[in-house]
């Protein structure tokens, strides 16, 4: 089995946890902070973090357009939490100047499950992830408000989609990288492998 090179957008957030998960899932992880680093990866993870911060840094350091170009050209990408927001075509309530990479035809609501006191864990069945539910860790998490026809919903919590896929793009409201369960990352690494052909 090939070992694809998967970047983790390392502007801010829980980068180290995604590195460990990618390593366990059979990919070679690389930090991506610059356009030339982005050009060298087969797929990309946008980590959890603060979506406004990641968006502003991506714009300030000339990464936003290269990210959009690669996603348009079919590079597989996976976003958890803030990463989900970054992969959404639209944010319901963006802060001034907050932009997304886009790619998934959906509208997301930031902090939809509430503030930190409402952050929670719950088991979650995810379509395409075999072997029982994953541990869903939701931290000031977004949910998907609505999706276009090409978007497949993989998991739902309390009536809201919390994991979705559109072709080579995957996103989750929750943080599998914090659990030590690498099945969601394995699913994404498989997506990167099939895109490589």
């Amino acid at each position: 089995m090939s070992t694809p090179t998967v970047g983790v957008l390392a502007l801010q957030g829980d980068v180290r946890e995604h590195f460990a998960a990618l390593d366990a899932a059979g990919a070679e992880a690389r930090a991506v902070r610059r356009p030339e680093e982005l050009a060298a990866v087969d797929g990309l993870i946008i980590p959890g973090g603060e979506s406004t911060t990641i968006s502003k840094l991506a714009i300030a350091f000339g990464l936003m357009e290269p990210l959009r170009e690669r996603v348009r050209a079919g590079m597989p990408a996976y976003g958890s939490c803030a990463g989900m927001i970054m992969l959404a075509d639209k944010i319901l309530d963006p802060r001034s100047g907050q932009e997304t990479v886009g790619g998934i035809d959906m509208i997301v609501r930031r902090n939809a499950f509430g503030r930190q006191n409402e952050s929670f864990e719950a088991p979650l069945a995810v379509t395409g992830v075999e072997g029982g539910p994953v541990e869903g860790v939701f931290i000031r998490a977004p949910w998907v408000e609505s999706t276009g026809a090409r978007v497949e919903t993989l998991a739902v919590y309390d009536g809201h989609p919390v994991a979705v896929r559109q072709d080579g793009l995957l996103s989750t409201s929750f943080h599998p990288e914090l659990t030590g369960d690498h099945r969601v990352h394995a699913l994404f690494v498989e997506m990167v492998r099939s895109a490589l052909g």
């Binding site: 502007l11 801010q12 957030g13 952050s119 864990e121 739902v156």
Partner: peptide, 29 residues
Amino acid sequence: SESSATSVQAPETGTARVKRGMAEQLKGG
């Protein structure tokens, strides 16, 4: 609703993973 994928179990708040995990999201910031 009908599918098991949409069932809701009682969420657990204030766990060590949720508290420490929140700080992990702030890293690099």
